[in-house]
Design a binder for these strands. Structure first.
Length: 295
DNA sequence: CCGGACTCCTGTGCGC
DNA sequence: TGCGCACAGGAGTCCG
């Protein structure tokens, strides 16, 4: 489930544990989680050019759901957690809570010691080695829209144009805004009072403004709570996120809306379960084509 | 341009 | 207890 808030919280918890430290050596136990920028059959596969071995970490950056571990002199380890990926720092002597599906281990041999592990049962996650920060920015620029945490209404209007695709599908498109996944798409649309099937290009200026505000507020609140743990998510120190009890719609189909008490409905959009409040999120179909005597 | 199906994986929970 | 199935936080590709 790692979406923007989980990756940002991970970044914040890992940064003090990694910053200014030199990676002593790297053990790759499953080479197929490693890629090189620019292609799936890249030569780095299986021989990941060290994955920062011998390098000093200078910075942890994030854009959308990507986490970039930047080393002195240029190389960048780009991490995408997919559905079940975890990056976990283990102090000296500490065992991983689970030792299965650990694919990569970075060891530190300075006086603080310890190691970082990449664990990913489903293996949808990817580690990508990129040669420089400039290449990283280019990689991101090609794939990602503006970071959803600082998204503005104008960004949405520009990305949507006159498209008739549903707003829910558009929000899941990382080229529209980077970092929103299934949980926070539903939560943001609920907060904005917008039905998930509304054509994205049909949003009014007011709705776009309210949606951008709702996205920022939804993501910020989730970061403050340390992210949402459904099953696999842990932060850099192995802690669960605390945001799950705050969710208004995700995972609550059939339960009463926290705002109005109506029973939350669900539908399937882009193969993703979509939960919404039929009252708080006005159905654009019924308002666009009102039934005689209705509404 | 778009929605939808399908793919990559493992784990879990449910109905039977 | 076991089995088969649907489904899960992501995202790329292909097809119509």
């Amino acid at each position: 489930m790692p979406e923007l808030p989980e990756v940002e919280h991970l970044r914040r918890t890992l940064e003090p544990l990694l910053l200014d430290r030199r990676v002593a050596r790297v053990q790759v136990r499953r080479a197929d989680v490693v890629r090189a920028a620019g292609g799936g059959t890249a030569p780095a596969r299986g021989r990941p050019a060290g994955l920062l071995a011998g390098r000093r970490i200078t910075e942890l950056r994030r854009r959308g759901k990507y986490l970039a571990i930047v080393a002195a002199g240029g190389p960048v380890l780009l991490v995408h957690l997919g559905m079940s990926g975890q990056l976990l720092f283990l102090p000296p002597g500490r065992q991983a809570p689970r030792r299965d599906h650990v694919h990569v281990i970075w060891r530190f041999d300075d006086e603080r010691g310890g190691r970082m592990i990449f664990r990913d049962p489903r293996r949808f996650g990817r580690l990508t080695l990129i040669d420089s920060v400039a290449s990283l920015e280019e990689f991101w620029r090609q794939r990602l829209g503006p970071d959803a945490l600082v998204l503005r209404a104008g960004d949405l209007a520009e990305a949507f144009g006159a498209t008739r695709r549903s707003i829910k599908c558009a929000l899941l498109d990382q080229a529209v805004a980077a970092g929103i996944g299934n949980i926070y798409a539903d939560e943001s649309l609920f907060r904005a009072g917008i039905h998930p099937m509304t054509p994205a290009g049909a949003l009014t200026r007011t709705e776009a403004r309210r949606l951008a505000e709702s996205i920022r507020a939804t993501l910020s609140a989730a970061i403050r709570a340390g992210g949402t743990t459904l099953r696999d998510y842990r932060d850099g120190a192995g802690r669960n996120g605390g945001h799950r009890p705050n969710l208004c719609v995700y995972g609550r189909a059939g339960l009463p809306c926290r705002r109005c008490g109506s029973i939350l409905g669900d539908l399937r959009l882009a193969q993703r379960t979509t939960t919404y409040c039929p009252r708080c999120q006005r159905n654009w179909l019924s308002t666009t084509h009102p039934h005689p005597g209705g509404g």
